[in-house]
Design a protein around this nucleic acid. Structure first.
Lengths: 223, 223
DNA sequence: CGCTAAATAGTACGATCGTTCGTTCGTTGA
DNA sequence: TCAACGAACGAACGATCGTACTATTTAGCG
């Protein structure tokens, strides 16, 4: 993945150039969260960061390249803000909760101005074939994969029974995070986030209720 | 709501005009489902239905009016294709299931070329204040209201316990419909719709399990 | 019928779109 | 120190955007 000396003999990137590129992509992420990746225009973006249209454009070979780079930048932000913190938690159900809480916190502290970058962009690109769409779909799958991994670890640790349909569980968790994101955008009311918390808690309580040597209705120690 | 003699003294609408308007809005609904309401352009729309740009534009006072009319047309289609058929079912849990099945059928038979019109458009407009957004939010709320009503009737009929948090139930049902719509768009695989079916079934089974004078694990007669 | 307004096409407008070019400026490696 | 090259700019491109006017055709009521 890492492209050091990409192809041929392009000499060197400059320090201020990288800073500009970073500033561009940072603004692009924020604008794309509200306007969408297609709705993001180069002129608007340039004006927004106080740069000339052509100066900005020089950093990218085409608009699609800008879009792909923007997605990449959003991935980096999301990883640093949500995924990596959650990785510090213990594997298993604790990590599932950590992922959920990290995501809700991500919304609450408005890392992007209008909820989850990927939810908005995915909804807009879902029906528009192309490299940006493929990349976004990949992100969604790897985000689902995080939950799948954590649930697999929960099964190995005996926190949930092997009979639990983990793929279905992943779907239902993601569904609630997906919808709560949009309710959050519309209402801006922190209380709506509790709907996702309550839903996920119930899902995990049930999944762990029927585990190995334990009876139903036992209170779950989330610790 | 009904605007017969709207304002002043505009004389009369013509038959072929209404037909054109219908054709325009029909195409607009379909295009907006893939391109989004903002991405829909008048030139593209005109070319798509074989009409001149100005001829098409004469039907609307502005693009926003076109957008609002498009939403209205989509509402009519959705009502006829999903809501009204479901209203024929018995109130209560049966109607909840009917609403879900009507929606999944709506996706499966591709009434719009890329899943649910309102899901796509809502995702795009959620963070963009304006009359179109307000209208879409209203549609979502009334769609949620249908589930709330049916669940309220279910409670009255004793199909679910009064202790069940129906607002939470509505949220979780809608969440699964919302996500399954996008998985359907991306994968075009009818099997994914079963994830929503399974999720909703489990939700309703649980809600009805703890009802008035009945013990757990009793099979639910959906009839 | 004929009259009239609705329906459509034609043309053009200013603005903005993504993109290209030529040029200047300033950083940086040799 | 200096030449080389990345970074940024202004201007302009053809295309398309939403919108506005005008002219022509056509449908439907008296």
């Amino acid at each position: 993945m890492n492209a050091e000396k990409d192809a041929g003999h392009s000499r060197k990137p400059r320090a201020d150039g990288l800073a500009s590129r970073h500033a561009i992509l940072d603004a692009a992420c924020k604008l794309a969260t509200t306007h969408g990746l297609e709705g993001l225009s180069i002129g608007e973006l340039a004006e927004h960061i106080g740069m000339s249209k052509s100066g900005l454009y020089a950093h990218f070979k085409s608009k699609e390249e800008l879009q792909l780079a923007t997605i990449e930048a959003a991935i980096a932000i999301f990883n640093a803000d949500v995924l990596e913190p959650a990785q510090k938690s213990r594997p298993g159900l604790a990590r599932v909760n950590a992922l959920v809480e990290a995501f809700l916190g991500h919304l609450l502290r408005r890392v992007f101005p209008a909820g989850c970058f990927f939810a908005t962009v995915a909804a807009q690109l879902a029906a528009r074939p192309g490299r940006p769409r493929d990349k976004i779909v990949g992100v969604q799958q790897s985000w689902a994969g995080e939950f799948a991994k954590a649930l697999e670890q929960a099964r190995e640790a005996g926190e949930i029974a092997a009979s639990v349909d983990r793929a279905q569980l992943v779907f239902e968790i993601m569904a609630m995070l997906f919808l709560v994101n949009f309710e959050w955008i519309v209402t801006q009311e922190p209380g709506v986030l509790d709907k996702a918390r309550a839903g996920v808690k119930r899902l995990l309580d049930e999944a762990s209720a029927g585990r190995s040597k334990a009876r139903r209705e036992r209170p779950l120690q989330t610790h």
